[in-house]
Amino acid sequence: MAVLVDDNTRLLIQGITGREGQFHGGQMQAYGTNVVAGVTPGKGGTKTLENVPVFNTVREAVAATKCNATIIYVPAAFAADAALEAMEAGIKLVIIITEGVPTLEMMTVYHEARRSGVVVVGPNCPGVITPGKAKCGIMPGHIHKPGRVGLISRSGTLTYEIVWELTRAGIGQSTCIGIGGDPIVGTSHLDALKLFNDDPETDAVVMIGEIGGNAEEDAARWVKANMKKPVVGFIAGLTAPPGKRMGHAGAIISGGSGTGQEKIRVLNECGIKVGEIPDQIPALVKAQLK
């Protein structure tokens, strides 16, 4: 069943009547994702997109539609609250697309999710796609191809670039998880690797990282000790100067830690082959699958 989302996903869109919710809601429906409900406070009782009922609260949406996953497009100031509302209403998969969520608020969301057994993906991420089954995010669906390679990444377009390279090389994807570019994210590289390790439909994993923090190193050490499947890596930001935030809130080298060079060193040490440029990824994956 790949991981996180598939054809059993009954998706709720929080912020469905906003610009992003409308556009990407339509794109997700066109891809075949089962969008069963939307929430926009004050617009309950109406319908939008292709016959999707809108509710004022997540609790109402869950009661009426049995939605089992949510995607959040609401503005940054309200995104953490939207995530907490979804968790309280019993939804077990919460994908936060929104960029700019205050870190301390995200901290609360993170710990509440762990406490209540909810998987949070994001914030500041492109979402999750299981090609051919469900697209819960903002990624272009058509560049993907169903297959058996899992993909984990902190970025959006760099991931599309690598997915596109894989697809053109004939390598399909089981699930692609955009974990997000913020310093605190609900699902880490390590969490995502564990999901793929246990997934019978995934044979190998591509892990795309970038400067800042040490989540890639933690993941690599876990791979060395526990992973049953090959992992190929890519790290962006080798030329980034220290102390500068490179677009993503989490992409910053601070106090000399979180450099790309160090990440690549640890990945190599843990037996993960790292591509120097994105074009090399398909060949590295193919070599591992032989």
Partner: peptide
């Protein structure tokens, strides 16, 4: 995109 922008700097250097 930020990730691709970093990747682009790196590939120029590469």
């Amino acid at each position: 995109g930020a990730g691709l922008a970093m990747g682009t700097m790196d590939i120029v250097k590469h």
